[in-house]
Design a protein around this nucleic acid. Sequence first.
DNA 1: CTTTTCACAGTCGCGCGGATGGGA
DNA 2: TCCCATCCGCGCGACTGTGAAAAG
Length: 591
Amino acid sequence: MLGSEGESSSFSPTKEAADESCKSPAVDAEDPGAGGGRFAEQGMGTDRYYIHAASKHSPEPPSPCSFIPYSPTGTVYNPPGAGRYPSSLHLGSVLPPAGFPSSAAGRGHFGSAYQLGQNPGCLYPPYTGSGSALGNIALAPGAGPAVRAQVYLCNRPLWLKFHRHQTEMIITKQGRRMFPFLSFNIAGLNLAAHYNVFVEVVLADPNHWRFQGGKWVTCGKADNSSQGNKVYMHPESPNTGAHWMRQEISFSKLKLTNNKGTNHNASQMIVLQSLHKYQPRLHIVEVTEDGVEDISSDVKSQSFTFPETQFIAVTAYQNTDITQLKIDHNPFAKGFRDNYDSMYTAPENDRLTPSPTDSLRAHQIVPGARYAMQPLFQDQFVNNLPQNRFYNSERAVPQTNSLLSSQTEDGASQRWFVTSMQQGGNSISTSNKIDLTAYEGEYSSSLLPYGIKSLSMQTSEPLSYYPDSPFTTMSAGWGSRGTYQRKVTPGLPWSPRPNPTTGFPEDSNKVKPQLDEEVNSPWTETQPPALSLDKADSYPTACKRRNLSLSGPGAEDSPADIKCKDLATAATNSSSSSKGMGAYYPFYKKP
DNA sequence: CTTTTCACAGTCGCGCGGATGGGA
DNA sequence: TCCCATCCGCGCGACTGTGAAAAG
């Protein structure tokens, strides 16, 4: 994100190319990693994003839910070739370079995603030779079964954290999972209609990037000749709208590769090119019951883009900030969290880092209830820990509750889901329907632990790779390992999912406050992260090798945390009597 | 010099098989 | 005594980032 924003109006693929020397885009001046200006313009950025888009693509007044769809406008990158899907991926003009604003977070969250396809001319050819671009059939909202959908990026806070530093995703020959991975909640679908849900990863800009001097800078033109699969069909596709809305839609199995010739698990792999910037997009395509796209009529397609999920594909991590974030948050990398000792021997006041077991609870999918009782705690931790830990508190600025509170008093309701301007898509090919039988077993066993299964299990046992996140509360504290308790919240609701027929709850007052805090926190810092500043000062030594934890493992708000907190709140406020699948009851309950 | 590849160590979940306990 | 369900331990495989070597 560092680069493209500043060139919002000049997304010409030739611009960078004209300048042979690698350079930092103009936006580098406000490079998130550059320090001072990092967060200064957050509000502005999102305001622009929101207003701009809304004004152009929201002919309707915002609904009570304020599902304001917006799609990027302005100059777009139009590389040669026909794209399979419409891409409005020029985010530079609409996104702040350094993450997302705090002040506008509330509104900004409405626009966590904007639907693509509003700009038919804005195509990037992730797919070549696989059909024409999406049609531009505009469906009237609510017309027939093709109602407007709303999509919620479940793990948005985590994405935002990475996005601040310019997310990097490792690509390997055998395929590497994304982390954070894409996880959505969907609402507003027709319960009975069938949909294919898939993710497409498209080139986000026309540049080739390199990491130089602690920054990502453009370096010539992107290679447009990339071939290979760019689409990952959700293993459960096709399925009914009710199904998609019933549970979190996780793309945790999605793998990224740079091996164009791979046929192994091709359906699970998306082929990317290193040092190119990509933007994942979620597509929801209505299909017939057998999963075949009905090209004869009424094929509805909706696409959603969450700008914060943009990333640069790399074969090796470049930015140690990203590396550390991955280590701190990815349970699979737990083995690299090598600062346990310091974590646990620190005085109580300094011991802001959770235990190793706690850290697992930061997993993005499993909603952790760890912060349910102390909604502000993690924010404090997130914001203060790095400074405390690495600067001997000298640069640590206490982030008080009042600060956070002030952020939530602006009345801006936080919504992490957005609706989309529905579009008709008569040419999205879903013919690459995967063999569901092949996935059935694996996915049902591997996904469910992340989702439904875990909810139905009234257990304190670890779940899948990300143990006990959903059911662990912060009440156990972040004390020593010895005192850590696995506390179970029986029947803890899972997420603030709306009634599938009514969309996400607009006035979930029980949930909103915490959401506000969660969402705002990363962006309400009144000072630039010390690390970034420091990094800028001492990049050569600080940036190339890791092991300076930026934020304590598990201290942050995983998506799961958010959902879980919401749920925990709901559970606290309503009842904890839900049993088994009842964990979802609150979700479907009418307020 | 930059980028990619590979082997490695560490962590974890899953699945299998044996042990255990309760009921018929 | 037999059957069934549950628990436990072990091994395997998946997954991670690291760091050196290879490739360009």
